[in-house]
């Protein structure tokens, strides 16, 4: 039987996609442009008011920083896990997964406990004598970034790890015996071969960051508002059309950025690797 005869297997997925993604997206588009008659007012408002542009740029910037941080922290952890004996790998992966069992809301609240005025971190620093006055950590951009990185890190670790397990260890041996020092084998063989998976992880983390809502709302200040927070605000005030326009913009920005990241990320990484040799 040809592959074509199995196409019907896609039917449930297709139905779900149509019903719960494409149809709402189309409705979003309609809501943003008909209020109740056709209008571009909402989109015009988005691009002419500096504050909205700021929020968009911030959302992209924060997401980029989170994605890059997760990659820088996650890649070496995945590498370390991949080097361990099989049984220990299972345990370590299990530990990585544990935080993902808890909702983002709870994990965000945990950061309040840690970073608050009378939180664990402030008390610890005071106890050691490093500070006299509690340092303001909650409701800062740093708190938002730290929490987002912590929440999304397992995803990047697992994606990198999955890519690494695909690499045949004999390739590293081949590189070594052909004259590569451990670092050279890493740079010339291991890194290039795990690159695609790493960039995929980076894009996934970026994508998830773009829609983050609870964490900036709870841990950040006014200056940390992201698009999702803006949408929520507009929905609360029953500005459905404007909220819809924001939602569409978020969707478009995310798609554009993913395409850019995949393309540019791969190109840049290739160049860096080549120059680094």
């Amino acid at each position: 039987m040809s592959a074509r005869s199995y196409l019907w297997l896609f039917l449930p997925a297709l139905a779900l996609l149509l019903l719960f993604i494409l149809a709402p997206a189309a409705d979003l588009l309609r809501a943003s442009m008909f209020d109740p008659d056709f209008t571009t007012e909402h989109f015009a408002r988005l691009v002419t008011r500096g504050v909205y542009i700021d929020v968009m740029l911030r959302t992209i910037r924060v997401s980029l920083i989170v994605a890059v941080c997760c990659t820088i922290i996650g890649y070496p952890i995945a590498y370390f896990i991949n080097l361990q004996p099989r049984s220990r790998q299972t345990i370590l992966l299990f530990l990585i997964l544990i935080p993902m069992w808890m909702s983002i809301l709870i994990r965000t609240f945990a950061w309040i406990v840690v970073l608050g005025r009378d939180g664990l971190l402030n008390e610890a620093l005071a106890a050691v004598g490093l500070i006299d006055e509690p340092v303001r950590m909650l409701f800062t951009s740093g708190a938002v970034l730290a929490a987002m990185v912590q929440i999304l890190l397992p995803i990047q670790i697992l994606t990198c790890y999955a890519a690494m397990t695909e690499i045949d260890f004999d390739l590293i041996r081949a590189a070594r015996v052909l004259g590569a020092k451990p670092r050279q084998a890493l740079m010339r063989v291991f890194l290039p071969l795990s690159l695609d998976g790493t960039i995929t992880g980076l894009v996934i983390v970026f994508m998830l960051s773009m829609g983050f809502f609870i964490t900036p709302a709870l841990l950040g200040g006014r200056q940390d508002t992201m698009i999702a927070n803006l949408i929520e605000f507009q929905v609360q005030r029953l500005n459905w059309s404007f909220a819809a326009a924001l939602g569409l913009v978020l969707l478009l920005l995310t798609i554009v950025m993913i395409v850019l990241l995949r393309g540019l990320g791969r190109m840049a990484a290739r160049r860096i690797l080549k120059a680094g040799l």
């Binding site: 045949d168 004999d170 390739l171 070594r176 015996v177 052909l178 590569a180 020092k181 063989v189």
Partner: peptide, 30 residues
Amino acid sequence: LPPEKRNVGMVFQSYSLFPHLTVFENVAFP
């Protein structure tokens, strides 16, 4: 000595060609 200092050539069972490099670059590697 580590493997890279022994200056021996090796052909592996599964060939272990570097999948991200061309034939030329594979051979040029050492």
